[in-house]
Write a protein that binds this DNA or RNA. Structure first.
Length: 349
DNA sequence: GACTCGTGGCT
DNA sequence: TAGCCAAGAGT
């Protein structure tokens, strides 16, 4: 069934390599909140939050999330807005939506790789990570860190998706009788702290003598980088309508960025108009400039111009909230910055 | 296989 | 600083 050509890598499939890696991990592993527990639920939450997100960023979100939803039963009872509120600022909000869907599907955290794979939001990496860390299943988990570590160890010239399968095969074959959870985490930890993208700390690497890239001084060549496009520039304008102490917002429709979250009425600014002209197109007058926020969404870099408008009445197509209520709404990061600025502006006037 | 989806850390 | 990148998954 496995079409992957069996790769013989005696220099990695050895007790010496495993011992060097695991010993290093046991004395250098960072103390992280999700490492203080064997609770499969918490390990699941951490792995979802860690997708494409740095450890440092995740920590406070993880702490708040498991405090609010300490187990699967508690999460299952949550609503999507509640989960999105706890997730706001973390990005990739589909993760939060899929997590909630998965929690409602699963009676308990699935204990095997194949069962985990069936849940929405859980792919090859995450299923392998949870299965190995929480349940000891012998399954290689390959994330960006592991791809970098193994592509350097073996000087693998493959790129993109081929590299991932390739590294899975290598890791699986080299795991031997090591503890699967420790094995996977050791490779990731090594990639995150020593075998970094730039300026790898090879002098501190426990497996440097096994590394072909180190031997040939080609660390910077691996993994093979894919060409990146220049971000496209966009300009957006939004208006914070204020009327009798309330502020008007709208819920973002499905199919758009940040679907299901809340924002101030927003529009694109055409190259032929000014931000204020575009903002007036939203149906407001007497605009006062509030804040300019620069943010980005993958290949777009966006400049968001925000304005305050004293509305004559509360437009019915908007929902009107007090400042305190706005604090509870799930909002995109840039919009949250505008909301914070508005709060201070209103207080100071 | 190539795109899409967020945000902040780091250099 | 501008750009790269992060414990990826879904389509």
């Amino acid at each position: 069934m496995l079409k992957t050509r069996k790769r013989r890598l005696p220099h990695l499939d050895s007790e010496a390599f495993r011992t060097a890696l695991i010993d290093w991990y046991e004395s250098n592993r960072r103390e992280l909140p999700w490492r203080r527990t064997n609770d499969p639920y918490r390990i699941w939450i951490s792995e979802i939050m860690l997708q494409q997100t740095q450890v440092k960023t995740v920590i406070p979100y993880f702490e708040r999330f498991v405090q609010e939803f300490p187990n699967l039963a508690a999460l299952r009872r949550a609503s999507e807005p509640e989960v999105l509120s706890l997730w706001q600022g973390l990005g990739y909000y589909r993760r939060a939506k899929n997590l909630l869907v998965a929690a409602k599907i699963a009676k308990s955290v699935p204990q095997s790789y194949s069962e985990l794979l069936e849940l929405p939001g859980i792919g090859r990496y995450t299923a392998a990570a949870i299965a190995s860390i929480a349940f000891g299943e012998r399954r290689a988990a390959v994330d960006g860190n592991v791809e970098r570590v193994i592509s350097r160890l073996c000087c693998i010239d493959a790129s993109a998706s081929k590299l991932k399968r390739n590294c899975e095969s290598v890791s699986q074959g080299a795991m031997g009788d090591a503890n699967p959870g420790d094995w996977n985490q050791a490779l990731m930890e090594l990639g995150a702290t020593v075998c970094r993208p730039f300026e790898p700390q090879c002098d501190k690497c426990p497996v440097a003598k096994f590394c072909k890239a180190n031997q040939t001084a080609t660390q910077s060549k691996y993994p093979i980088a894919k060409p990146t496009a220049k971000p496209k520039k966009l300009v957006h304008a939004c208006v914070c309508p204020v009327h009798k102490g309330k502020v008007g917002l709208c819920k973002i429709a499905s199919g758009q960025w940040w679907a299901g979250m809340w924002e101030f009425p927003r529009t694109e600014v055409d190259t032929t108009e000014t931000p204020m002209t575009a903002a007036e197109r939203l149906g407001f007058a007497d605009l006062q400039g509030l804040l300019i926020v620069k943010h980005s969404v993958t290949q777009y870099s966006i400049t968001l111009h925000s304005f305050v408008a004293r509305a004559k009445k509360q437009k019915r197509e908007l929902s009107w909230f007090s400042q305190d209520a706005i604090a509870e709404l799930p909002m995109p990061a840039a919009q949250r910055k505008v909301a914070d600025a508005l709060k201070h502006a209103v207080i100071s006037t």
